[in-house]
Simulated scan of single mutants.
Amino acid sequence: MAAATEVEMGLERCAYARVGLLGNPSDVYNGKALSFTIADFSATVRLRPSPELLIQPHPHHDLVAFPSLPHLVSRLQSEGYYGGVRLLMAICKVFYNHCIQNNISLKAENFTLSYDTNIPRQAGLSGSSAIVCAALNCLLDFYDVRHLIKVELRPNLILDAEKELGIVAGLQDRVAQVYGGLVYMDFSKEQMDKLGHGIYRPLDVNLLPPLYLIYAENPSDSGKVHSTVRQRWLNGDEFIISCMKEVAQLALDGHRALLQKDYTQLARLMNRNFDLRSCDCREMFGDDVLGSVNIKMVEVARSVGVSSKFTGSGGAVVALCPDGEAQAELLHKACQEAGFVVQQIKVAPSVLSDEELTSLSIC
């Protein structure tokens, strides 16, 4: 529970960017996933009591004043119509409706929500859901209902908020950001139908080897990746179903490899995850969807023997250097020459309280 003085002075909660290590995009298809959060990139939401309920626009991400009409058009062409205000409004609606439907009473007090983020836009790092997750944490503590909404169900609320806005996504990102740290997830249909959520297992972040993040200055649009594939899956396309089952198996195999610290196997699995998505199964996601810049990032990493795959739907790549620091130096040089940003990943720790972790073990 948030202290009364904290609520009175204002709350501040953050959620970290997410990297899909293995299994993506099978989370949308009753698959499995291994994901973790990055300490260097996060979204922060601030909530303070106020006479009226106010959603405060961000001075950069929700810009509505421009020097000229050409500047406005240029901005829309490069960044689209999207900002964080709509995300904050959506989670407020979903949170309120969930509380009403589950007889959770809320105090009659208003607030002002504002946000900030340093997560690169459209880079496959789940920047939008980080804003929603941080806002949900503010609402849980402002209304003192954290203990009444199960940890396992919070990712569903975040996803529901994004669905309100037409965002196509799965639960993987939201689970990783609600839990923080390293998480193994099982979204099998039996579990989803029985529990209303998957089975999520937090893991020790020290199981991970050194990993690197590669991203482009001109990211892709990650929102369109699942479009035709999901419909084919729903229609019972055997090819798509078979591919997704293999992608899901990679997450299960990766879970075992991490527990054994078998990083040679982990590197192989990461490469296979990407190959299934773009090479062996180009019929599943063609180059037009994956994007030439995104594919080039993987190709640059592999040119120096580094294992790599998308962190999400595109825009960024997670890389593992099987041969250690000397190979990492080659990776830095190759990325610099190709015009990509590369940095070693600092994994964020779990964000759950001891009480919440205990509740997971008895559910």
Rank of each mutant, 00 (worst) to 15 (best):
A2Y: 04
A3Y: 09
V7W: 02
M9D: 15
G10E: 02
G10W: 02
L11C: 09
C14L: 15
A15W: 00
V19F: 09
L22R: 05
G23D: 11
P25I: 13
D27T: 03
D27L: 10
Y29P: 00
N30M: 06
L34E: 07
S35Y: 06
L47A: 10
R48G: 04
P49T: 12
S50F: 06
P51A: 09
E52G: 07
P57N: 11
P59L: 14
H61Q: 12
L63Q: 14
L69D: 12
H71M: 08
H71N: 11
S74H: 10
L76V: 08
V85M: 15
L87F: 09
M89L: 10
V94G: 08
H98K: 04
I100S: 14
N103P: 07
R121T: 15
A123S: 15
L125C: 05
L125S: 04
L125Q: 01
A130P: 08
I131N: 03
I131V: 15
V132S: 03
V132M: 03
C133Q: 00
A135F: 14
A135G: 14
C138Q: 01
L139E: 05
L140E: 07
Y143F: 15
V145C: 10
I149H: 07
L153K: 10
N156G: 08
L157Y: 02
L157M: 06
E162A: 09
A169Y: 00
A176V: 00
A176R: 00
Q177C: 03
L182A: 00
Y184W: 10
Y184H: 09
D186E: 07
D186P: 07
D186Y: 12
E190V: 14
Q191W: 08
D193S: 13
I199V: 15
Y200R: 01
Y200I: 04
L203I: 03
V205N: 06
L207C: 06
L213S: 04
L213P: 08
I214F: 13
S220N: 04
S222L: 01
S222M: 03
K224Y: 04
T228I: 07
L234W: 08
L234P: 07
I241A: 12
A248C: 14
A251Q: 01
H255W: 06
L259T: 13
K261D: 05
D262K: 12
Y263S: 04
Y263P: 09
Y263Q: 02
Q265A: 11
Q265I: 14
L269H: 11
N273W: 03
D275Q: 10
D288R: 11
N294H: 03
M297A: 10
M297G: 10
S308R: 10
S313D: 06
S313P: 03
G315E: 01
G324V: 12
H332C: 09
Q336G: 05
F340P: 03
V341R: 08
A348V: 00
L352E: 01
L352I: 13
S359Y: 08
I362D: 15
I362N: 13
C363N: 14
